[in-house]
Computed example of a mutant assay.
Amino acid sequence: MELRILRYFLAVAQEKNITRAAEKLLVSQPTLSKQLSDFEKELGTKLFIRGHRQITLTSEGVYLKSKAEEIISLADKTSLNIKNDQIISGDLTIGAGESIGMKRIIDIMGNINQDYPDVKIHLISGMADEMETLLNQGNLDFAVFMGERDLNEYNYLQMPETDEWGLIMRKDSLLADNDFISPKDLLGKPLLISAQEISKSRFKNWWGNLGSKMNIMGTFTLVFNAELLVENGNAYMMSFNHLIDKTHQDKLTFRPLNPPMIEPITVVWKKNTVLSKVAQLFVKRLQASLHNEDL
């Protein structure tokens, strides 16, 4: 399976037309058609449904498209990172969830880009399980975990920042008069909770024997979208502090939990792997920022 053929396949999948794809790739239409036909024979399956006006993907084609995009992205990134051994260039890719702890990391990434304009920085947002998968696949240089996780398979740096769990609600809510939110305060309240935290039963111990009485109306992955529902007055949201978007600050407020729930923030990268020069620079500058914090 050659990278060139995968690029041909992706071009046709994106254009949905052999002629347009051939023009984009600067190859002849017959050549492209034959290459793709040979590719299907090599794989022993049909990748395309060739219609009168456009081409669509079979289920096997859809699967290959997702994998081909990952393969091509990793190949391009690797090539870019080793092209020039004399200067710092290439891509720096970090995956993380939403957290106040990202400010330090983003500041370092921004400073690296300012000092080395050839460096391209990429931020990928998602839940910790997704970020760990991408890291292990080689699609991330670093992942940022919020909360306790098994770190035995990784190199890591612990951030001084922490995340504090609490409740986001409308400012005119009765619970907004509380300094803290206890489990009994949430009885009967429609709650939105991160899909990841639901799957890991993150609040099981905090709720105690009241857990079965909680009204969990739904889950979310993006805080901003969930805040729209809270602002609408239809829900309360369990979330980290400092994540209320500026567009919602006039209507929403945060109250910490009691007993408190505090999460560590950790930057991790794969063991037994050679970091690119820009990734090494990121680690060096992150370590320096933590050292300065201790002084």
Rank of each mutant, 00 (worst) to 15 (best):
L175R: 00
L187K: 04
I216C: 02
N225L: 12
T162M: 07
E227L: 14
D179N: 05
W206S: 03
S199V: 08
E231M: 13
N209K: 14
Y156F: 11
L191C: 11
A176Y: 04
S182D: 06
N178Q: 10
K213H: 12
G218D: 10
M217T: 15
E231Q: 15
K171V: 03
D179G: 04
L228M: 12
W206T: 09
G208V: 12
G188H: 01
I168C: 05
P160D: 07
D163V: 11
L191W: 04
I181Y: 00
F224H: 15
L222M: 15
E227D: 09
E227P: 00
F203A: 10
E197P: 00
N178P: 00
T221G: 05
A226Q: 03
L192C: 09
E161C: 06
P183Q: 00
Q158V: 10
L174N: 14
L187N: 01
G218V: 08
K213L: 14
F224Y: 14
W207K: 01
N178R: 09
L191N: 01
I181P: 02
I216K: 06
S199D: 07
L210C: 08
L222H: 10
S182C: 07
G211C: 07
I216Y: 03
L228C: 11
K200N: 15
N225C: 02
K171T: 03
L229K: 13
E197W: 14
V230L: 02
N215E: 05
R202E: 15
S212D: 12
M214T: 05
L186I: 06
L186H: 07
E164A: 13
D172R: 00
Y156G: 01
K184W: 06
G188W: 00
T162A: 09
V230E: 04
I193C: 03
S199Y: 07
I198G: 08
F220H: 14
G218N: 08
E197C: 08
Q196K: 09
A195M: 13
M169Y: 00
M159T: 11
N209W: 13
I181W: 01
T219P: 12
L157S: 14
D177T: 15
Q196Y: 14
M217L: 12
I216R: 03
A235E: 07
G218T: 15
R170H: 06
D185A: 02
V230Q: 02
I168S: 06
G233Q: 02
W165Q: 09
I181C: 03
A176T: 03
L191M: 09
F224T: 07
N225A: 08
L157A: 13
L167W: 02
M159E: 07
L157D: 12
L210I: 12
K204V: 06
R170T: 11
E197V: 06
N234L: 08
G218L: 09
N232C: 08
L167H: 01
L191D: 08
I168F: 00
S212R: 14
N215L: 14
V223R: 06
D177M: 10
V223D: 15
N155C: 15
S173L: 00
G188R: 00
T219M: 09
